[in-house]
Structures are given as structure tokens and as C-alpha cells.
Design a protein around this nucleic acid. Sequence first.
DNA 1: AAAGAATTCAACCGCAATTCA
DNA 2: CTGAATTGCGGTTGAATTCTT
Length: 303
Amino acid sequence: MGRSPCCAKVGLNRGAWTAQEDRILVDYIRAHGEGGWRNLPKKAGLKRCGKSCRLRWLNYLRPDIKRGNITADEEELIIRLHNLLGNRWSLIAGRLPGRTDNEIKNYWNTIVSKKVKHQPKPSKETKLTKSKVIAMSRPATQVVRTKALKCSRVLFLNPPQARPQVMQQQQHHQADTDPATQTNAMPVVKSKNADGKVPCLSGGEDHLATDFDFSEIDLSEFLNSDLSDKFRCFDGCNYGSYNNTSLTSNSTSEQAMMFSEEMVQSWNLGGCAQDQANVGSNVQSLSPLLDCNKGEWLASGVI
DNA sequence: AAAGAATTCAACCGCAATTCA
DNA sequence: CTGAATTGCGGTTGAATTCTT
């Protein structure tokens, strides 16, 4: 016996939604909340398939939908995320508040893919960030992952130990409460190999930042390679605590984002320009890959 | 101004993943 | 544990709109 259809399609409206249908759907969801899509049309009095109602709500009627053109910053982020994640539109949309997966998918298919296709390879003189170079110089078809993979462990870069000059700045600004100028305590995250045999990506415990060249890591390639399975990630409960953020295996993706962003800010206080660029690029590249679902992490390419 | 071509994007479809009984 | 029901996702379609000739 095959799967039963999501709804009886006979007698249902199809095609573009009318203003009246929109109003009925919005009113119903305001009163009863989201979910129960299968029975929603009958209860709300709509001659629509439940799936259609869900799609209409998520892609168009939701109050937090952002209207207007995609900005240049958003486009850059889309390109970078697509380079890392492939056509996983919902994950990409999750990093662009107010944008829907459908919108981003359409935008990519109509605008960005053409731009990337016709993008000339950057010359040595062209000043581009590492992420831009990665995004623009690779074919869009390199990463093809149609579904997120669930993993039980997560790859995480071992942050460098605090540099002396950063520690001084940090003490200097300790009483500063202005968020625009506030500096944060350096994160101290120790790698811990469970059996001591599997190498940690950072190169081992107490590895100094100066000994570790972030520029040698191409995170997206790493995550998509067989190597990713051979490296051990942090297996302790606590990946690090920092300011008010503690990153654990139970952290939400928002906390992971905040954590990585704070680390970038903090690292950017010290080190040479190249260090800052490399660290920022790698950590920011990593954060979109992190997602949390009931304590289990999702990461592209790491199983 | 009109016709055809090209583009855009909302909506649909089928399948996979997840939840539920 | 199993199978059905439900939800979510990405690919595709086609009507509406815009552009070009």
C-alpha cells in the first residue's frame, strides 16, 4: 500500500492565493498557532491543501518575513554559505534573518549563479577577502549535498592561547560596559583527545597560536574530504566558556554563532592583519555549519 | 504599439526525515 | 519495533511581469 496523498486534491483551489484566503489563514494561525497543517484547511475553512497553507505561511505571510531586495552583504553571505553548504537553502536561510529558503533559492538560481558563472578569476592585485576568493573562484557545483547529515561529534578549531597584549587590553577595558567598545575575555578552550591517538586539528593541547597557521586550513575542503573522519573533535562536555557564553554539546546554534563571533572579535584585538583575516575567515566559515538539534550537532561533511 | 523573448518568483510536487500511535 | 502520518526540504513549473525588437 502506497503513501496516502497529503490531501484530497479534488475541489481544492490551486495557483495564486487571494487576499481573502491570506486573511483567513493569518487569522487562523494567530488564533491557533502554527502546525497541524493537514487539518488546518478544513478547520480554517480554506479550500487549499495543508501543504499549500504551510508554504504560503512560511514563505509569504509570516510576520517576520523581510521584504525588499537582497542587499550586497546578504548576497556575499549567500555566496559564501552556498560555497560551504551547497544547495541547502533552509540552512542558508537560517543565517539570513527574515529571508526564506524559497527566496534564497530563487535568488541564487536567477541572479547569483549567473554572476558566479561569469566571475573572472581574481588577479593577484585584486584585494579580496579570503572568503570572497573562495566563493568566487570555485565552481558552484563543487559541493553537492542535498540533505543535512547528522553527526555525533563536531569539528571545532582550537583557539589560540591569550596573547599578552590582548590580555593587557582586556584588563584595561574590563570596566567598560559600552557594547560598542567592550572587549571580552579571551576564550580558553583546551583540546582533549579521548585516547590520545587521534590527532586534534589544532595540533594538540596547549598549542600556541603562533605555532598554528590557520591559513593552511581550508575548512570547506576539509569538511568535505575523507580526512574529516580521521580527526577527533573535542569530546568533553564543555567546549569552552567565554564571557556569558558557554559552548557545550547542548548549546543552541545561536549560542554557537555568538560564541564564534565573540571569539573573532576577541582575536581581532591582537595579531597581525593576516592572522586576523585568517582566524576571522575560518571561524566565521565554521559557524554556519553548526546547528543543534536536541543536543546533536549537525555539520556538513562530518559524519 | 504590438509581439515575442526573457526573467522572475510563488506555488506545486515528490521524496526523505521525523514523529506518533 | 513497525508502519502510518506528518513535516520539511530541494527541484521544478508556469503564470505574470518586464524587456527587447
